[in-house]
Design a binder for these strands. Structure first.
Lengths: 216, 216, 216, 216
DNA sequence: TATGAATGAGCATTCATTCAT
DNA sequence: GATGAATGAATGCTCATTCAT
């Protein structure tokens, strides 16, 4: 992977996060790293290809671990790995979640990749939840309930950060709150076994660290 | 409120939903109702003001009922009123949810109003949930838990429709699924009393009508 | 027809003739008449539409007379009307003939209109030639011969001006030579009756005026 | 002449014919033969030089025979050699005729060479026609008439293929029709001696093969 | 000879907004 | 109130050409 290409990707991510993908022109990207427009188009056929490259790299990072899960092992998964480890990665690609639908309606090729991936991920999550049910970390759920739980997990994974960002500007804190959102979505379905080895409590402690305690 | 102004608003909503707010030009709006561009700018200072007007009216409709809730009466609220009655209203303003963050990053004034409203609505929902807890329709929840429940409700209200839309094109069906998403978010917190008078079951029946039964 | 629209058309024709249609940008056109780019696009959807407008107006002028021919009257046609009267009009639209094929391959809509017109004109010319044969201004010709005569007339009408322009820069003179080219194409098929009333000789005299006599 | 240079020329001709010279980028040429852009510019100073090389080679081929004519021998020339033998060569360089004027207005140096060559060829053709007149294959013609006959031959040689191409897509057939156009231009000037040895009839037979007979 | 990264002017087109009438 | 002509900066993208290696 060429250095220049990486720089374009990084600058794009930075600007897309700062001002939105749709409000960032290819010229802006070039100016921000001091290269010519032509040079950007030497590395990328068009703006959509930049987006696709960013998204593809992001997904690779995100799902590396999920794909390697041992579905035969008796282990609680969701929170330690999925919620905590990927906070930084997700923070870096916030704009994808913030603007997804506007992006999807403007870039049809990206849309196709997104849909393809959504289907794949839905299957992976379904498998994962069934595994957690199987090993009694989750209470039993019907297929119907699992489908809607996944849909809700997707919405929250995508959007809860936006909610907190609209309310205040502490991005780091908001990312932690966003993870807690996922936890609270799942909590009603967790069994006591899920908490047994202390991993989950430990994870929650980390997340709550820094959060203003608002309990009554 | 002038007739002409209403026409502009209606045409804008129609076009924003059809092609997206960011892909609809002011000229296009004008052509669709046969007025001049100059005339549109007589009624609205700029495109952002159109958006703000649309959003404000939308919220007024949505929260009319919520504001009129008698917080002293013993009544289950959420599903019959909030989930079902507003489906049509929400369907009409789908684009706001689909494009929210791209819009917010382009129109700073709209952003401020959005935030202001979000805070207000959060307070209203908090009051409502506490009321439901008070009358035992919801199980007891800490302030902390309520905050995250509201955040999750917001994410799901905003985004679950997108999830289903990416997977297939049946908009009507997807809107119903989206409402079920809200139900499944709340379900773990509902008491048996919530189901007692049958209103909730009736509402669920309506939602499930048309959905393929995927239970095991 | 708005004044501004006419100005754009005129400026376009001027520049297209000077530097070629494909080498003239919309910006050039705007700058040459001191209007903004946006304004040009207010009057024309795109560059192709400018071209189509130019071509359509040109054809209207060119074929006004041809369409009004009385095919029942005993009259020699071709040279007095077709060759002489339209010299100025054709001179003004030289670029269409000079660049036709490059234009046609870049602008598909223009291409369609061009083809449609070519077919129409071919029919008109066929009718006209048959009429001239009928009234004994032309010697008898088979359909096959007429087809190729028309094809040759088209090539010469389109291209002979280019030939002379490549050899020297006297545009006015070259246009006259170009008309003589058409005459010499037709000459072998003309009967003595065609020359009888003197109209043709008069026309030829006009054309030859200004031409250096190169006879031996 | 280097191999690499030949490859560039060949690839250019192929692409220019397929998509037009003006729509073919240097990068595209390079990609099609798997060399680098820099390398192309090692062999050719610029795009114009490629064109000039193509054109020069083309003319060399075309006029090799013409230059070798024995102007003292009594032989009918034009059709057997000029019209038939060069069909393939001309077919290969179709784009030059299709785009000539757009090219000429973009590439001034090419224009100069084109003009220079046009003058040379005009002289050659004049000499040839006079030779044919001398040996009674052509009827007597004044210098003036010869000039216009050459101009017409040039227009038809350049453009008649375009005429047929606009009307239908059978390139092979259209090339034959185009040759017949040249024949019909010359026919009125041919003497019976021109047909005597049968060569001409044979050539015409070949051309007419494949053409739908449309005689009445 | 050969590479391919880099340049930057150029292009067609869009669009929110203004303003004289 | 209403019109619609006019603005001009901005956008995504192309392409002939250069040049260090």
């Amino acid at each position: 992977m060429s250095d220049r290409k990486d720089k374009i990707i990084e600058a794009s991510i930075k600007l897309f996060n700062e001002k939105g993908c749709l409000n960032t022109s290819t010229r802006h990207i070039c100016e921000s790293i001091g290269i010519s427009v032509g040079n950007l188009y030497y590395y990328f056929k068009n703006k959509e290809e930049i987006l696709i490259e960013i998204y593809t790299r992001h997904l690779e990072t995100i799902f590396k671990e999920v794909k390697l899960i041992d579905y035969e092992s008796d282990d609680v998964f969701l929170f330690k790995d999925f919620l905590l480890n990927h906070i930084i990665e997700e923070e870096k690609h916030n704009f994808i979640y913030l603007e997804l639908n506007a992006i999807v309606s403007k870039f049809p090729k990206f849309r196709e990749i997104k849909i393809q991936n959504l289907k794949l991920n839905t299957e992976l999550l379904k498998k994962l939840i069934k595994h957690q049910i199987n090993y009694k970390y989750f209470i039993p759920l019907s297929n119907h309930e699992i489908d809607f739980l996944i849909a809700n997990a997707w919405s929250i994974g995508l959007n809860s950060i936006n909610y907190w960002n609209l309310l205040d500007n502490d991005l780091k804190l908001n990312r932690q709150k966003s993870s807690l959102n996922m936890y609270y979505l799942m909590k009603p379905y967790l069994t006591s076994k899920a908490y047994e080895n202390g991993d989950l409590d430990e994870a929650l402690d980390k997340l709550n660290k820094g959060l203003v305690n608002e309990n009554d």
